[in-house]
Simulated scan of single mutants.
Amino acid sequence: MLDSDYTQRFLFDDTDVRGEWVGLERSYAEVLAKHSYPEPVAQLLGELLAAAALLVGTLKFDGLMVLQARSTGAVPLLMVECSSDREVRGIARYDESLLAPGATLSELMPDGVLAMTIDPTNGQRYQGIVALDGVTLADSLSNYFASSEQLPTRFWLAADGRRACGMLLQQLPADRIRDSEEREASWQHLRTLADTLSAEELLGLDTQTVLHRLYHEEQVRLFEPRSIVFRCSCSRERSANAVISLGQQDAEQLLAEQGGAITIDCQFCNHSYRFDAADIAQLFAGAGTEGPSGTRH
């Protein structure tokens, strides 16, 4: 039986197209458990989580990928991070007074932009930005690839507050099919079949069942699934480094202003890291980050 949180790659043997499937339950639930998100916000965040997991499955890198959508509307921020180890976390910002039932993506996130950042452990950081102008988040992500001169890529995404699922199709460089018209016809055929996939099917079926329903006449090779987990990358050490970056004078001034302790809150997981006067002295004495003050959950 498949794990509840996984990605799974598949290939069409007779064409130059590959795909990726994702299903998220536990990791999605852990992201939502950190904040009380209204339904439309939880849905958008789930779709972005699924998209990030799909994209990491197509990339060969060690490091972190960040998807970030910003707007001037009811949802000014959606942000998801997914590492090459398939560890995800995510957060959203919203104005509940502006949320309307049944609102579309353009109504929730007007004047939106979508940024994808690849931050490898070794190598140069890359970022691409595109207008968030699709009818759905899946459309906007597909438009990103269409406008950035990368491999043609299409997304299908769905989330309902319990599960977040998605599928990706990507056209590969010419190998099995060299004729450009034949390549385009094959790509169009596979996309058209995928467009018949409903949100209910995305959320309710596993990879094999979906692929059989869509592509039972195609030669599809399905690879082993790979697990996805929620994990926040915050730590006392990283928080201490943020305090050190202030400089000793400013840190001591902030310590006095905050009543004898500096508290750094992780917006992703709600963990709080507290540094009192003894901790601050220890940090700037170069004695490390371990101290008497603990972490508050």
Rank of each mutant, 00 (worst) to 15 (best):
V31Y: 02
A33H: 07
P40F: 09
P40G: 08
E47W: 02
A52F: 01
L54F: 06
A69R: 00
S71L: 15
V75N: 07
V80Y: 01
E87H: 04
I91C: 06
E96V: 09
A103D: 14
T104P: 03
L105S: 09
P110Y: 13
V113Y: 03
M116E: 07
D119C: 05
Q127P: 04
G128Q: 10
L132Q: 06
D133R: 10
S147R: 12
R162W: 00
R163G: 01
P173Q: 13
I177N: 08
R178T: 10
S180P: 14
E181I: 06
E182M: 12
S186N: 13
Q188H: 13
T209H: 02
Y215T: 00
R221D: 02
R221N: 02
S233L: 12
C234K: 08
S235F: 06
S235Q: 12
S239H: 10
S239T: 05
A240D: 08
A251K: 03
E252T: 05
Q253C: 00
Q253L: 07
E257I: 08
Q258C: 10
G259H: 03
I264Q: 11
D265T: 13
Q267H: 11
R274C: 15
D276S: 08
D279K: 02
D279P: 00
G286C: 12
T289D: 09
R296F: 15
